[in-house]
Structure formats: structure tokens, C-alpha cells
Amino acid sequence: MNQIRFNNNIKISYSEDILLKDAKIPTLTLVTLVENAFKHGELHDAKNPVSIEIMARNSKINFLVSNKKKKWSKRIIKRYRRK
């Protein structure tokens, strides 16, 4: 959805290594972590894409989301403080 929102202009790296086919996690558990990466991350930096990695094996699920933090201007900070 974010690719559509930003005209396919954001940089995302996604990888998965799922050997545990019957792994289950509660619905929408990981969504907040991914949303925060888009909300607070620099989305247009090709050298530092939003990275989403998931690995499931040996009865464990490892999930990693990383991003370069967006630089905030004083104007944006003031707008958020008013809310």
C-alpha cells in the first residue's frame, strides 16, 4: 500500500527464510513494527532502504525491521507537538 501511496518510489528490502511451514503468530502482531518503519523512516534513500526480514525455523520466528531515521524539521516537530 505504501508503494502505491508514494508512486512506487520508496526503497524496501524484504527477505524471508521460512522452513517452519506451520509457524503461527497472532493476526496483525507484526504490523505495528512495519508501520513504525514507514512512519519514522527515510523512505527514499536507496543506500538505506526499509528492511524487513523474517526467519522461521526450529520452532522460533525471528522478525527484524530496520530503517534510517527520518530527519525532522522544526516545522514538522511543531506541528506534531500541537496535536
Rank of each mutant, 00 (worst) to 15 (best):
M1N: 13
M1R: 09
M1Y: 11
M1W: 10
Q3E: 15
I4H: 02
I4T: 06
R5T: 04
F6N: 04
F6K: 02
F6C: 04
N7G: 12
N8D: 09
N8V: 03
N8L: 08
N9M: 01
I10R: 00
K11V: 03
K11W: 09
I12T: 04
I12M: 02
S13D: 15
Y14E: 07
Y14W: 05
Y14A: 05
Y14F: 14
S15W: 11
S15F: 14
E16L: 10
D17M: 06
I18A: 04
I18E: 01
L19F: 12
K24T: 11
I25T: 08
P26I: 06
L28C: 10
T29G: 01
T29W: 08
V31K: 10
V31L: 12
V31S: 03
T32D: 03
L33W: 01
V34N: 00
F38G: 00
F38Q: 00
F38V: 00
F38H: 00
K39Y: 01
E42V: 02
L43G: 01
L43S: 02
H44P: 04
H44S: 14
D45H: 03
D45L: 02
A46Y: 08
A46K: 12
A46R: 10
K47Q: 15
N48Y: 13
N48K: 07
N48C: 10
N48E: 10
P49N: 07
P49S: 06
I52G: 02
M55T: 13
A56Y: 05
R57N: 07
S59A: 10
K60S: 11
K60H: 13
K60M: 09
K60G: 07
I61F: 08
N62D: 14
F63G: 00
F63E: 02
L64S: 05
V65L: 03
N67G: 01
N67W: 00
K68L: 13
K69C: 08
K69E: 15
K70R: 12
K70I: 09
W72Q: 12
S73F: 05
S73K: 08
K74T: 12
R75W: 08
R75Q: 15
I76M: 12
I76G: 08
I76D: 14
I77M: 12
I77L: 14
K78C: 03
K78M: 13
K78V: 11
R79M: 12
R81Y: 05
R82L: 08
R82A: 09
K83D: 06
K83Q: 11
